[in-house]
Design a protein around this nucleic acid. Sequence first.
RNA 1: GGAGGGGUGACCGAGUGGACGAUGGUGACGGUCUUGAAAACCGUUGUCUCCUCACGGGGACCGUGGGUUCGAAUCCCACCCCCUCCGCCA
Length: 420
Amino acid sequence: MLDIKLIRDNPDTVFKAMEKRGEDLDQVREIIDLDNTYRQLLKEAETLRARRNDVSKQISHMKDKPADLIAEMRQVGDRITGIEAEANQVAGRLEDKSLRLPNMPAEDVPVGKDAADNREVRSWGKPKGFTFDPLPHWELGEKLGIIDFQRGVKLSGTRFYVLSGLGSQLQRALINFMLDTHSKQHGYTEIYPPFMVKRECLVGSSNLPKFADNLYHDAEEDYWFIPTAEVPLTNLHRDEIIPPATLPIYYVSHTSCFRREKMAAGKDTRGIKRGHQFEKVEMYKFVEPETSDGELTRLVADAEDICQKLGLPYHVIQLCTGDLGFAAVKTFDIEMWAPGCKEWLEVSSCSNCGDFQARRANVRYRPDPEAKPRLVHTLNGSGLALPRVMIAIMENYQQADGSIVVPEALIPYMNTTIIR
RNA sequence: GGAGGGGUGACCGAGUGGACGAUGGUGACGGUCUUGAAAACCGUUGUCUCCUCACGGGGACCGUGGGUUCGAAUCCCACCCCCUCCGCCA
């Protein structure tokens, strides 16, 4: 959520930012109108309230309660109720509109229309040459008996799969390797959060109200399944004032992620690239506003470190204004080359969200013991998404006979050096 | 799930209709005193929001949401959470 004061006082800044994103500017105009109406009503209600408070105080001092004053105040009370009902209605609409307006891109984000305008900022490693035709992971997985697509469908339907034997072990090894690396080498505190959360958590992270159609929801108990660990991690400090000298806070968390993928219907249905349930290791930072840009650089570096330790070639691309996620100020994606399915796989997306989520989730910090609370900045980045890294490993480390060499970094986590 | 108890400011803890944003204490900060420190004493110490260039002023907040009333931390209703006991369970 943007600061309503910013929208009010510098509407042009907001218009320009939304234009760069390709957003409909009418939303901003509506917000400004609703804000004006709301404050007008609030002012009326508060003036009446001040009068009532004053008179009530006077009445409390009087021996004989004056019936006419009380009657008058009863009317004032009714008017207050009426105006407030109206004000609440306007406030509700204002909130809904505000929650649906995306964040403003940072000044240095390249302006562009869509993914085609994203920029490669660097690349690492050389794609391995093959003396044979590398197979896609779904063929490798089935041949090796480590991915069972048919039974996944039997159990749960399309976009579900079963990992078995060394397939399952490879995933577990990767999870442990990533958690260990981030917690022991990069300074993150490991968190195990709930996978089902309350509605307000999704509002805090900005998945709701706008992206409800990508979420699983238990109507009976009103639990929402997390689409990423970013959701519970954002809310870990919801409605808190973080004490002085505490920031930055770094968290890392492995969770299952649940996504309906309504928007991507029919896309990427083959293999394990896009399922309704997948594992992810997520890094998350709460930082002081002045430091968030530098923290993003280091967040990307922490994600890259995993790629490098696994010996998997990748490139880093910066998203342009038109491709930026809803909450992000600036984002870098990491993509790995998959020689089997011959495409770049997005294994990580690292974003600085500025104070956008912090305002929604009401996460503040106190710079000094005497100072007023300020909103923190939040950052999130995959470190990394498991299925796609599995694809990259399988396809990059495959051999002519269909076996897969285990990357060196994972050998201590596996009971084998080769999957065959 | 059943029975009972309880949710008040950073913390402890008073407050059952009217000067209560909330007594008191602790902690923290500033000051007096002291060579220094402790003790003692004095003072300061919430969040949000609206109006104002500012000084300052208004409004809201005592788990959450409704209701009663001229007026609610205090009364009524619903819900949530915590504690104790019982039941059930990985």
